[in-house]
């Protein structure tokens, strides 16, 4: 990969990688570590990408894998309560802050499918392939996540 392509990928996709990692870890510091690791792998990747979409999918897959590897590590067992998470973003509207907090308080498995489905707009089939799950398991997680968000965010959910 050429330097210009690499930098363009960083500009375009760094936040996407961070979002995916943040949904997996729930901890900004771990997510930032994952961002660095993912782009290091991009730097070392020798095969050319066929298109921007190919690159995006590759980055999503690598982000998921990097986070999964880190979560399996015997050293990474930190679970930080929501109120202890530093550096929460400042949101424009209160309902956005509530949604962020509600999502981050969900179990990891729900957070990840929410991000991939709602933000990255992947299909449940694609998510299933990425996470090594059955499609029905993804659908179940999405339904459960929606139910829990609905329960936590009664007013916000109604307005949305």
């Amino acid at each position: 990969m050429e330097q210009s392509e690499f930098q363009a990928a960083v500009v375009q996709y760094q936040d996407m990688v961070y979002r995916i990692a943040l949904h997996q870890f729930g901890v900004p510091q771990d997510a930032e570590d994952a961002v660095q690791e993912v782009f290091l792998r991009l730097y070392m990747e020798k095969k050319p990408f066929e298109s921007g979409e190919h690159l995006r999918r590759w980055l999503i897959r690598v982000s998921i894998n990097v986070c999964k590897d880190a979560l399996k590590s015997p050293w990474r067992k930190r679970r930080v309560p929501m109120e202890a998470i530093p550096d929460q973003p400042v949101f424009d509207r209160p309902e956005e802050r509530e949604l962020y907090q509600a999502v981050m308080s969900l179990p990891e498995k729900y957070r990840t499918v929410l991000d991939l489905f709602y933000y990255e707009e992947l299909s449940t089939k694609e998510i299933a392939a990425l996470l090594g799950l059955r499609q029905s398991a993804v659908t179940t997680r999405l339904s459960r996540a929606r139910e829990q968000l609905k329960e936590q965010l009664k007013e916000v959910w109604k307005d949305a």
């Binding site: 660095q36 782009f39 962020y100 949305a160």
Partner: peptide, 27 residues
């Protein structure tokens, strides 16, 4: 819901500085 979700998480940004020049040292 999707719109609110996207609006919310579009405000989440990575602060790590990723530079081509640093990658070789990190390899």
């Amino acid at each position: 819901m999707r719109e609110l979700y996207r609006q919310t998480f579009s405000q989440v940004h990575s602060s790590t500085v990723i530079r081509w020049e640093d990658m070789e040292a990190m390899r």
